[in-house]
Amino acid sequence: MKRREFILLIGGGLAWPAIARAQGGAKLHRVFWVSTQSEPDPFLDGFREGMRALGYVEGKTVTFETHYAPGDPQALRKIVSELQRGDIDLVVSSGPATRVMTAVTDIPVLFALSGDPVALGVVKSLAHPGTNFTGSTFLSLELAGKRVELLKDIYPKLRKLAVFSNTDHPGEPLEWRATLESCRNLGIEAAYVPFCGAREIENGLMAAGKVDADALLVFPDAVTLVHRAKIAEFAIAHRLPSMFGWSEYCDAGGLLSYGANQRTTYFRLATYADRILRGENPSDLPVMRPEKFELAVNLRTARLLGIDLDVSSILFRASKVIS
């Protein structure tokens, strides 16, 4: 046994050490970025950062072709035909654009979804996508209820909650339904304030101001993320304790946020992009889910709100405190 191993080793060992390492740097990879959001795109920035961290140099080893169709997934259908020209190595889609990309079957597609990719039909299972799709999902549905709970923990007097939601977001109805259900469990009246895309955000906020709510819950998506400062300002102005999906909102003045770390998610997405560009099959790459959730609280905002908040119920479990 040992001798055979030894001989094997000598035999194998004498083959000159494989010099051919990953040649990821040699080729220029073309990445197609498809989104129904509009620029500036914080997700693209996060993804770019991830790719840079993995050693990709934009313009040298990777180029991003960005395609935005704000609020109009149908407009992206034209883009799908563009993909037929054949020199695209990878498509990264965020938001509802993923649904349109189901027409693409021969190019790997990476997605970042709030909803369930299995329900959306782009993968067969989380463990084995079995298609040209893979990516990460944010578990937004499960967290939607949790956000309401946390809001009630910090503001026990909460009776009516304004739910500010971009309808132009995949899985938004499901998220609204989950929120509504937990509101019911917690004895809170939910006031649905929908808007569609960045154009309507001002109107949406005006509508939110009129529902006479005790607090504001904002669904996390690119539009609200881009306009987070405006929304946070609005909440403070209307003395509404606000709850968001990602800690970036808190940095911009939101009171609370609970959700997965965006950067981590996009870094991981970049890792998958790297693996696919190196030749791995997306159908073998399981869909990623976050396992760490950040609870952020902005004490400055809490002071600015000037209302009676049970900050202590949150502070001891917050992972990020902004003061």
């Binding site: 463990a127 693996r275 869909v287 990623m288």
Partner: peptide
């Protein structure tokens, strides 16, 4: 490589 773990029992 966490993706191997995420493949479950397979």
């Amino acid at each position: 490589d966490i993706s191997l773990v995420l493949r479950g029992r397979a």
